[in-house]
Amino acid sequence: MSDRVKHRQSKASALAKDGTLNPAPEKIRDQKFREDGFFDPRDIVQVKYEMLRRIFLNKMSVTEVSNEYPVSRPTPRLIVRDQLKVDPSWREPGYWHEMNSEEGG
């Protein structure tokens, strides 16, 4: 068994132990997770971070992000509300559109 395979297996074991192993890494469609390198589709924390980054920094719509990261459309909003503790005004109509257009998007 190669060192690279051993490293990937040990990382997967560590992610599983921490409860952050993505149960369906093959479903991630974002190209950077398909290329071999830094981005690991098995790391659910990294996947969620990149998903939110695509919304906030790349100005992608929640629908577009939901297509690249196999989640329901409410999932990014729930992460923002529950994990990032952002103001719950995300429920207001047009909130995400206004957020995406605030910085010239």
Rank of each mutant, 00 (worst) to 15 (best):
V45Q: 08
F38S: 07
V71T: 09
I44E: 11
D18H: 02
P88I: 06
M1G: 03
S101Q: 06
A14Q: 15
Y49R: 13
R77H: 15
D40R: 14
Y49G: 01
A24I: 09
A16V: 01
P93T: 06
E103Q: 10
T20P: 00
R77Q: 14
H97V: 07
N100P: 00
E92P: 00
L84D: 03
L57Y: 10
G104C: 06
S13I: 11
W96T: 09
Q9S: 05
L78D: 12
S13A: 15
F33I: 06
E68P: 00
S72F: 07
M51G: 03
R73K: 14
K11I: 14
Y49H: 02
R8I: 00
K59G: 03
V65R: 11
R91F: 01
S2P: 01
S101D: 00
T20K: 12
L57C: 15
W90V: 00
E68Y: 15
W96E: 08
A16I: 01
D40V: 10
Q83G: 03
R8F: 06
S72R: 12
M1E: 01
N100L: 14
P25G: 09
E103I: 10
V71Y: 08
E103S: 15
R73Y: 05
K48H: 10
R73E: 12
M60H: 08
A16F: 01
F33C: 11
S10I: 11
N22L: 00
V71G: 03
N58M: 10
G104T: 08
T63D: 14
S89R: 11
K85A: 04
K85Q: 06
D87M: 07
K11R: 14
F39I: 00
R34L: 13
G19E: 12
E50Q: 11
L78T: 13
P25D: 03
S101T: 08
V65T: 10
S10T: 12
S72G: 09
S2I: 01
V47R: 08
T63C: 09
K6R: 15
P23G: 05
R53P: 01
I55Y: 13
S13E: 10
R81A: 02
R34V: 06
Y69L: 03
P23N: 04
K48Y: 03
G19W: 08
A14N: 07
L57A: 13
S66W: 02
E102K: 15
A12S: 08
N100K: 15
K6H: 11
M51Q: 13
E103G: 12
H97L: 10
M1T: 02
R34Y: 04
A14V: 02
K11C: 09
V80M: 09
G37D: 05
S10Y: 04
G94R: 05
D43P: 00
K17T: 10
E103R: 15
K6V: 14
P70S: 13
W96N: 07
D18Q: 13
V62D: 02
E26R: 04
